[in-house]
C-alpha cells in the first residue's frame, strides 16, 4: 500500500505539498453523502454504541480538504466502510460553534482543534468512544490509504502495532 513509513513527519511533508497541489475546490465543508455529526453528538453516540469515532478536522476554503472530498471520500468503498465502522464527526477548526463535552466542559470547534493539536487541515483522527486518540493523520489521504487505515483501526491492529509497523508489513 504505502511504500514509505507512515510517520507523522512524512505525512506533514505530504500535507504541505498537498496544500499546493490541491485539486478541485468545493468550499471544503463536510463532503456530501457523509453523515457527519457534531463532535459532541458523535462522542455521545459512540459511547452509547461503544464504537470508535472518525473525526475530520476541516476548514472552510481549505484546498487540501477539497481535494480529499473530491478524490477520496467519494470512493463508495471508503464511504461504506466508514459509515459501517465508525461514528463520524466533522469539526470546522475555524468555527466558533459550540460543543459540550461529556465532562460538561463547553468549548468551540476551534478550541477543540487546539486541544487536539490540529496545526493544519485536513487532519483525521480515529478515537475511542471516550475521545482518546487511536491514531491521527494530517494532510491529504487517498482512498486506498483510508481503506488501509480502516483495516488498522477496525481490525484492532492498533492495540498491538503502531501504524508505521502495520504499514511496513504491507498489510
Amino acid at each position: 500500500m504505502w511504500s514509505s513509513p507512515f510517520s507523522e513527519i512524512n505525512r506533514m511533508v505530504v500535507f504541505m505539498l498537498g496544500l499546493y497541489l490541491a485539486s478541485p475546490a468545493s468550499l471544503a465543508d463536510a463532503p456530501d453523502g457523509w453523515d457527519f455529526l457534531a463532535f459532541d453528538e458523535a462522542r455521545a453516540q459512540a459511547t452509547a454504541e461503544n464504537r470508535p469515532i472518525f473525526v475530520y478536522f476541516g476548514r472552510y476554503g481549505c484546498p487540501t480538504c477539497a481535494r480529499v472530498n473530491h478524490e477520496s471520500l467519494t470512493d463508495p468503498d471508503v464511504r461504506k466502510r466508514y459509515h459501517e465502522h465508525y461514528i463520524l464527526a466533522y469539526v470546522d477548526s475555524e468555527s466558533g460553534d459550540r460543543l459540550r463535552l461529556p465532562n460538561g466542559e463547553r468549548m468551540t470547534e476551534m478550541d477543540l482543534g487546539i486541544r487536539y493539536k490540529v496545526f493544519g487541515t485536513p487532519f483525521f483522527f480515529f478515537m475511542e468512544p471516550d475521545g482518546k486518540t487511536i491514531t491521527r493523520i494530517p494532510g491529504f489521504v487517498s482512498a486506498p490509504e483510508f481503506l488501509a487505515l480502516d483495516r488498522y483501526v477496525n481490525g484492532g491492529h492498533y492495540r498491538n502495532q503502531s501504524l508505521q509497523e502495520f504499514i511496513s508489513e504491507g498489510t
Binding site: 499546493y20 490541491a22 478541485p24
Partner: peptide, 14 residues
C-alpha cells in the same frame, strides 16, 4: 495554493 489555476481560485490559507 496556486493563483494561476482557476480551479483553486476559491481556496486559500486560513
Amino acid at each position: 495554493p496556486g493563483a494561476a489555476e482557476s480551479y483553486l481560485e476559491n481556496t486559500g490559507t486560513g
